[in-house]
Amino acid sequence: MELQLIEKSDHDLFVQNLINNYQVEGVKPKDGSFIYGSIKAPEELCLDFDCTLISPKKYFLPPKEALLQFALTPDSEITPLIENDPFILFGVHPYDIKAINQMDRIFARGVPDPHYLQRREAALVIGVDPTAVAPRSFWADMGASTVSEGFDLMFTDMGEHFIVEIGTNRGRNLLEEHAKLKPATTDDARERVRIRSRISHICKKRGFAFPKRDIPKLLEHSWNNFLWEEQASKCLSCGTCNIVCPTCYCFDVEDHVDLDLAHGERIRRWDGCLLQDFAAVATGENFRETRASRYRHRFFRKGHYLFEILDDLACVGCGRCASGCLPDIADPVNLFNKLKEG
């Protein structure tokens, strides 16, 4: 592992250099929360946050994106729109990087999806270790305190300076070109381990009362559990849990026609399996008509269905679903622990 050191006093210069050369997206405070947005000046960038409202998945799978462009004339050419403008995504917590790694596998497996993959390829991801834990986070229990891949650089706030782990050659080049570096000592490396374990320890206050690898098996025996019905009776079918989730990637595809009625785009937009019509077909059949069946589907997807593909739970413990859910029924910690109690 290769570590470098940037003095805090030199950090703004690094960010400014990036802004001068790249489109930089990063974390900013907004109305008492944190969001990802464009960074136009070093002081806008916040690396000291607990969790953002929306996950960085929006940079690779935008809430709404055009897949194809076409003219409404016979024989017109249909043009795929595949974006690959390079950009820097600065300030991604390890649990969100873990989620991105999972999405990478999903969009690359089987028939690869270049609309996602090329955006992903174009991004330089600069991770940052959390300095605070959001009230509903449980990423430490999900094994997402640290990640070993999925970032080009990984920053850790050490007080007077940042330690930077180099993840890729692209990251190294970026750093060497734009930052004033000092070599990190073995003491620095040890201190980083200590800081990471301290924050991880704080996060461990929330978690499962049993090993998380038991969750697929637990779900196998829980299809008819009364909890689905009981919890979902409060569900608003709003899809917030889907929208904020860094590992939810379901989408709908629809055509939008310009006002000139001569051109149009085929777009995809985020969809959510909690929404009422998600599994409805044109003949009127709705294959998940009840709130309980949709609510259960989401937990089965996170805890069981995707396990085979990812060899892991499709949940990284960010807790966004828990904080976003008005009736507070979306929290995986609460739900799985309740299921385990029986």
Binding site: V111, C250, F251, V253, D271, F278, A280, T283, R301, H304
Partner: peptide, 24 residues
């Protein structure tokens, strides 16, 4: 079996029957 096969390539999630994608 009929489901809402929206993307056809096992991504969009609409056609799932438990862990299976009807489109694939």
């Amino acid at each position: 079996l009929e489901r809402k096969m929206k993307c056809g390539i096992g991504k969009c999630g609409h056609c799932q029957i438990n862990h299976l994608y009807v489109c694939q």
